[in-house]
C-alpha cells in the first residue's frame, strides 16, 4: 500500500472512532436490557406465586381433602399424594426403559444403523407434544381397561420420561473415558460386567441427575393426565381408579369461578414450583461439572 494512502486511511479511521464507540455503548445497553427482560418473567412469576400462594399454605392445605364448593378451607392433600403415586408409576416403567435405551445407545458404535434409528426415534419421541402423548395413552391404557386410572396416568408420564432419561443417560455415559472401559476389559471382565460394574458405577451421580430431571419434568406435566388419570376429589391409592394430581388440580381450580379455589390454585402452584425447581436445583448442584467420576 502506498504511504500516502496509508496515511489517509489512518486519518480517516480516526474520524469514525467516536461513532464506533457510541455504537458499541448503545449495543451494550440494548443487549443488557434484553437480558434483563429475559429474566424478569421468572422473577415476576415467582414473586406472584409467593405473594399469592404463601397465604394458602398450611398444615390443613397439605393434609386435607378439598372443601365443598363455596366453603373455605380444605386442601390438596389428595393431589400431593396423587402426584407422588403417578410419578412412582411413571418411574417404574420410565427409568428402566430410559436407562436401557440410554445404555444401548452409549454402547453401540456411532456407525450402527440400528442405533441411529433408535436415537432418531428417541429424539422424535421427545418432540411429541405432551397432549398427543395423552391421546396415545388414552388409546393404550384407558380404552382397553374400561376407564380413567392412575395406571394410565403413570403410563402417559413414563412416555414423557423415557426419551429424557434415554438421551441424558447416553450423553453421560459417553463421557466415560475409553481407558476406563479398556482397563476393565484388560482385567478379563466380559463387556456386560464392565458396563454394569464399572461404567455405570462411575457415572451414578450423572445418571441420578438424569432421573431427577425426568421426574421433575413429569411432576409438572398436566396435559397427558387430563384424560388418563383424570382427577378425583377423594383420597385414592388404587392403580385402577382416577386420581388427582397437583397440576391437574391447579388447572381445575384456576378455571373454576370460585374465589376460594383460586386461592387454593395459587397455594398448589407454589408447592408445585418449589417441588419442581427444588429437584432441578438439586440436579444442577449434583452435576454441575459434567465430568466422569464425580
Amino acid at each position: 500500500m502506498e504511504i500516502a494512502t496509508k496515511k489517509l486511511l489512518l486519518e480517516f479511521m480516526v474520524t469514525t472512532q467516536a461513532k464506533r464507540k457510541r455504537k458499541n455503548i448503545f449495543a451494550n445497553l440494548v443487549l443488557s436490557i434484553l437480558a434483563i427482560l429475559a429474566v424478569s418473567p421468572l422473577v415476576a412469576i415467582l414473586g406472584f406465586l409467593i405473594s399469592k400462594g404463601i397465604g394458602a399454605l398450611s398444615w390443613e392445605f397439605l393434609t386435607s381433602l378439598p372443601a365443598p364448593y363455596g366453603e373455605s378451607g380444605g386442601g390438596m392433600g389428595h393431589s400431593i399424594v396423587g402426584t407422588f403415586i403417578l410419578v412412582l408409576f411413571a418411574s417404574l416403567l420410565g427409568i428402566p426403559v430410559g436407562f436401557g435405551a440410554g445404555i444401548f445407545l452409549a454402547e453401540s458404535s456411532k456407525e450402527s444403523r440400528f442405533a441411529s434409528i433408535v436415537r432418531l426415534c428417541a429424539e422424535m419421541l421427545a418432540g411429541v407434544p405432551s397432549i398427543v402423548v395423552g391421546l396415545f395413552a388414552y388409546f393404550v391404557a384407558v380404552l382397553p381397561f374400561g376407564g380413567f386410572s392412575a395406571f394410565a396416568g403413570g403410563f402417559a408420564l413414563s412416555v414423557i420420561m423415557i426419551p429424557v432419561i434415554a438421551r441424558t443417560s447416553e450423553e453421560i455415559l459417553r463421557l466415560v473415558p475409553v481407558h476406563v472401559r479398556e482397563a476393565g476389559l484388560a482385567l478379563g471382565l466380559p463387556r456386560w460386567q464392565v458396563v454394569m460394574r464399572i461404567v455405570l458405577r462411575g457415572s451414578r451421580k450423572g445418571l441420578f441427575t438424569a432421573v431427577l430431571l425426568a421426574v421433575a419434568r413429569a411432576s409438572g406435566e398436566t396435559a397427558p393426565l387430563l384424560f388418563t388419570a383424570l382427577n378425583s376429589r377423594l383420597w385414592s391409592f388404587s392403580a385402577t381408579q382416577p386420581i388427582s394430581s397437583l397440576p391437574v388440580q391447579i388447572y381445575t381450580y384456576a378455571t373454576s369461578p370460585s374465589e376460594e379455589w383460586h386461592q387454593q390454585a395459587w397455594g398448589g402452584a407454589l408447592l408445585l414450583v418449589l417441588l419442581v425447581l427444588g429437584m432441578s436445583l438439586f440436579a444442577r448442584f449434583l452435576f454441575s461439572g459434567k465430568k466422569y467420576g464425580t
Binding site: A38, V39, P41, L42, V43, I45, L49, S130, A216, S219, G220, E221, T222, A223, P247, I250, Y251, A254, A269, L272, V273, V276, L277, S280, L281, R284
Partner: peptide
C-alpha cells in the same frame, strides 16, 4: 435464572 425459567411447569 433462565435455566430455572425452563423448569417451571406449563400450568404455572
Amino acid at each position: 435464572l433462565i435455566e430455572m425459567l425452563a423448569a417451571v411447569p406449563s400450568v404455572i
